[in-house]
């Protein structure tokens, strides 16, 4: 069994440092700000001056998931990686006329900077992986976390993060076409074989890419495989899809905004809900058409 222990998110909702995050969710508007804690109380001086927003929110939420023993694996999913530093270095290349270039943005532009910063901060020498498959990056990271537990490891940090930069908003209508505001999100949690107080577990995760299959049929087969009668589902969280199940359905994009890590925040919302009231929740992510991620979480 794959149990969820500590979990932490920073987003445009009140999510950081709260036991339950599902009760006070607000429908986001383009003006909803990213709600960050005082980093100065949490991060060391070098991190404060050098790290971009995605690195700060990732490191901060990851540190909330620490327990007494070192992680046996750190798994990070990010769809677009460190966009702010990538853009900064692109601007540097274009605007610098002298022979030398400032290296910091380049160093921190690679996707694995998130996991690298976490391992560096914790002096953790374990498995450290970065998955980037657009909006499926979180589901793939969760699958990797489960695989690590199957391989005999126990204390795993799994998370996903993506950041908004103004450039993304310029792509709307031409490329992205969304009615939801662009956001920044970091969600990290601790996955273990041992039961946690909240007693919420990941039942299964499915990743299907470049797919022409009917989402509703895939969902039914996924539930069947997990011996889960659709009528027993408490709730379905989805990325603005037509879901044919008669269960209560919630479009999570209203609360997460448009972000490749949105399903990670939806996962946190679901975990929060089950931590209060037992049940089974399905998270359906098809933010990028043709890609489908399914996560089934449960508390008996």
């Amino acid at each position: 069994m794959y149990y969820i222990h500590a979990i932490s998110s920073i987003s445009h909702q009140q999510t950081f440092d709260l036991e339950f995050i599902h009760n006070d969710l607000q429908k986001l508007t383009p003006e909803s700000p990213l709600l960050v804690p005082e980093f100065i109380d949490i991060l060391p001086p070098t991190a404060l001056r050098r790290l971009s927003a995605i690195l700060k929110i990732s490191l901060t939420t990851a540190l909330k998931c620490l327990n007494e023993s070192a992680f046996d694996g750190i798994v990070v999913g990010t769809g677009l990686g460190c966009l702010q530093d990538t853009e900064k270095f692109l601007v540097t290349i274009n605007n610098t006329t002298s022979d030398v270039l400032s290296p910091t943005a380049f160093i921190q532009s690679t996707h694995n900077t998130i996991g690298g910063q976490i391992s560096l901060f914790l002096k953790n020498h374990a498995y450290n992986m970065t998955h980037t498959q657009n909006a499926l990056s979180f589901e793939i990271s969760l699958l990797d976390g489960i695989t690590l537990l199957n391989e005999g490891k126990n204390n795993i940090l799994v998370g996903a993060a993506d950041e908004k930069i103004p450039f993304l908003e310029l792509l709307n209508e031409d490329l992205i076409k969304t009615d939801y505001p662009f956001t920044s999100i970091a969600t990290f949690f601790n996955l273990k074989k041992e039961k946690s107080d909240r007693n919420v577990l990941v039942k299964d995760v499915l990743v299907l890419a470049n797919s022409k299959k009917d989402i509703n049929e895939v969902i039914l087969r996924f539930l069947e495989k997990n011996q889960c009668d659709p009528t027993n589902l408490t709730k379905v969280y989805h990325s603005d899809l037509e879901i044919s199940l008669s269960t209560e359905k919630v479009n999570y994009l209203d609360f997460t905004g448009y972000n490749y890590a949105a399903s990670a925040l939806a996962f946190h919302i679901g975990v929060s809900e089950l931590s209060e009231i037992p049940g089974t929740i399905l998270i359906v992510n098809s933010l990028v058409k043709k890609d489908l991620g399914l996560i089934l979480i449960e508390r008996c």
Partner: peptide, 22 residues
């Protein structure tokens, strides 16, 4: 880039993933 490679190979309805660890 991985989806584009998968399309060229004719891979559909499958597991695709991209690793980015420099």
């Amino acid at each position: 880039s991985t989806i584009e490679i998968a399309k060229e190979l004719g891979l559909e309805d499958c597991f695709l993933n991209t690793i980015s660890t420099a």
